[in-house]
Design a protein around this nucleic acid. Structure first.
Length: 574
RNA sequence: CGGGGUGUGGCUCAGCUUGGUAGAGCGCCUCGUUCGGGACGAGGAGGCCGCAGGUUCAAAUCCUGUCACCCCGACCA
């Protein structure tokens, strides 16, 4: 393409509202423009990159036998009422009514539509397993869209759904997908990890998130410093040594102390001159409607997801103040396991078991108890791993220390099981003519987010550095001075030749000074730059890799011969 | 949803406290010089100051409302 008439409105600077590197660089490179909060126009360069990424995803999906289709973005409310998600998804659904006042929504994901399709069209085990996917715009009314393409309200996503007669079949497709994802992110040259994750509102069983490592990521990952263990901190397990029963023979009886106004761990340790790990933090949760007292060590944090899992519950959240008052007889901040007004279930973290004595709330305003011995002074109904992992904790697999890293979630694979086939009655007939419930998996990749994540991970002070796989063009051809007849003719010839050879080349034929072209070229981040300049008279041009900065001079014939080789080297760091 | 902030040529911003002719840099157009890392000179186009009310002789500026956008938090996947 000749750059002169292309819509590539580069900017020297952008406003302070764009904070994320990818957001700033994509604005500056003339790739995206914001239309509304979380809604962006993809200009020609961004659209090319988007299609490049799409194509990689498509190839890897096709390779594992997935079939591409396109589902409607507009969904009737009935389908979502049937699955129960019309209410569950809540205000995040963008919905509207048509002229007949029928409810519709713009799909944030497509389990309902695909399940409806498959239950109608696939009735026999002979067709199974089957994997279908689409690449489509999704709509989510995020409470707070932010960070440019990383968290939009309209975004491009690849979503795949698999259907099976049994779990073994799902396991196989899940593994295939997992490998396909690894190939996709590897082809994009990304530094990423597959981590164990929580399935959230999607429901279902085993699942992994694919995280691009980046300090600007919203998710925190717990990575083992020694083995392969990797998990989202939301769900990461806490490893522990062999549990040792504490010796509490010498522990005196509980003693009440006045602690006026000390309702937080910090205030209590200040007042009593204790360390946080000598306290038991007691929090009242409402779990499936019932109050449950949850105990963790003072320096630990309760993990609601784990509490929910440990109790096999559907819902779990901190109890409101009234409930706390009723159950403990005290304002929030003074709860403890001794002397509750109501008998409630008590769940404690493993670390609590190992405490010989502890400070707890006294279930009385402005008072705490000293010398409380778990097991002696109160009973625990269930000990479980219910705290959030901390940096330095033992890895649950090998015991080595866990370290944290930040990541951007670009993919997620789920084993859904029968979550949707149950609620939507999706069945098939097996070999014996008996009806079976379809077992499902679903697998997403945020395509537009992936583009932004690539920029987050691949840039320098001068601009974007595209991996060849995602680059909008492979070669940026620059004529230094178009008024120089020799340069201009050589550049034109080279452009036509490259084009004829099928090379994806962007030709900067603008009547600008060299400095402007070089600056823009760095900003756009095309992997290989070819400059036609001073040496044009000798029939020579210069090449330069955007990533490594390495350069050289070649005749045009040599260049054309070596171009495939040069492009192979373009992603190299050195 | 709570807290904070910002809306002024295409872009980045000043002007607002203390009301009185709407500004700068970049970009854009024309001419000339320049031409390998965001050139220089001269001339020019372009803005009902987010919107609606109000106060005032007079509002970008003060008041009220409203909308949009950004940031932090909560929430959610």
């Amino acid at each position: 393409m000749r750059q002169k008439n292309m819509l590539i409105p580069t900017l020297r600077n952008v406003g302070a509202e764009a904070e994320m590197v990818s957001h700033r660089l994509m604005l500056r490179a003339g790739m995206i423009r914001q239309l509304a909060a979380g809604v962006y126009t993809y200009l020609p360069l961004a659209y090319r990159t988007l299609r490049k990424v799409e194509q990689i995803v498509r190839e890897e999906m096709d390779r594992i036998g997935a079939q591409e289709l396109l589902l409607p973005a507009i969904n009737p409310a009935e389908l979502w009422q049937e699955s129960g998600r019309w209410d569950d998804y809540g205000p995040e659904l963008i919905h509207f009514q048509d002229r007949h006042e029928r409810d519709f929504l713009l799909g944030p994901t497509h389990e309902e539509v695909i399940t409806d399709l498959v239950r109608n069209e696939v009735n026999s085990y002979k067709k199974l397993p089957m994997t279908l996917y689409q690449i489509q715009t999704k709509y989510r009314d995020e409470r707070r869209p932010r960070s440019g393409l990383l968290r939009g309200r309209e975004f491009l996503m690849k979503d795949a759904y698999s259907f099976h007669v049994d779990w073994e079949s799902l396991d196989k497709t899940y593994r295939d997908m997992y490998q396909a994802y690894i190939r996709i992110f590897t082809r994009l040259g990304l530094d990423f990890r597959a981590v164990e994750a929580d399935s959230g509102a999607m429901g279902g069983e085993e699942n992994h998130e694919f995280m691009v490592l980046s300090d600007s990521g919203e998710d925190t990952l717990a990575l083992c410093s020694s083995c392969q263990y990797a998990a989202n901190v939301e769900t990461a397990k806490v490893g522990r040594d062999e549990t040792k029963a504490p010796d509490m023979a010498e522990v005196p009886k509980p003693e009440k102390l006045s602690t006026p106004g000390a309702s937080t761990i910090d205030e209590v340790i200040q007042m009593l001159d204790k360390q946080p790990e000598q306290l038991i933090k007691s929090l009242l949760f409402t779990v499936d409607g019932d109050p449950v007292l949850v105990l963790v060590r003072g320096d630990h944090e309760v993990n609601e997801i784990k509490v929910k899992q440990a109790l096999g519950a559907e819902t779990c959240h901190l109890a409101d103040d009234q409930t706390v008052n009723r159950v403990t007889g005290a304002p929030t901040g003074f709860a403890g396991p001794l002397g509750l007004k109501e008998a409630v279930r008590v769940v404690a973290d493993h670390a609590v078991y190992e405490m010989a004595e502890a400070v707890t709330g006294a279930n009385e305003a402005d008072a705490h108890l000293l010398h409380v011995a778990p097991g002696r002074d109160f009973q625990v109904d269930l000990y479980a791993d219910i705290r959030t992992v901390q940096e330095g904790d033992a890895c649950p697999h090998c015991g080595e220390p866990i370290r944290f890293a930040k990541g951007i979630e670009v993919g997620h694979v789920f084993k859904l099981g029968t979550r949707y086939s149950d609620s939507m009655n999706a069945t098939f007939l097996d070999q014996e003519g008996k009806e079976g419930r379809l077992i499902m998996g679903c697998y997403g990749i945020g395509i537009s987010r992936l583009v932004a994540a690539t920029v987050e991970q691949s840039h320098d002070d001068n601009g974007i550095i595209w991996p060849v796989g995602a680059a909008p063009y492979h070669v940026h051809l620059i004529a230094v001075n178009l008024k120089d007849e020799t340069q201009s003719r050589l550049a034109d010839q080279l452009y036509e030749r490259l084009r004829a050879d099928g090379v994806e080349v962007l030709y900067d034929n603008r009547q600008d000074r060299a400095g402007v072209k070089f600056k823009d070229s760095d900003l756009l981040g095309i992997p290989l730059r070819i400059t036609v300049g001073k040496t044009a008279a000798e029939g020579k041009v210069e090449y330069k890799f955007r990533r490594s900065g390495k350069s050289g001079t070649l005749t045009t014939e040599e260049l054309i011969k070596k171009l495939p080789d040069l492009l192979n080297r373009a992603d190299q760091q050195q």
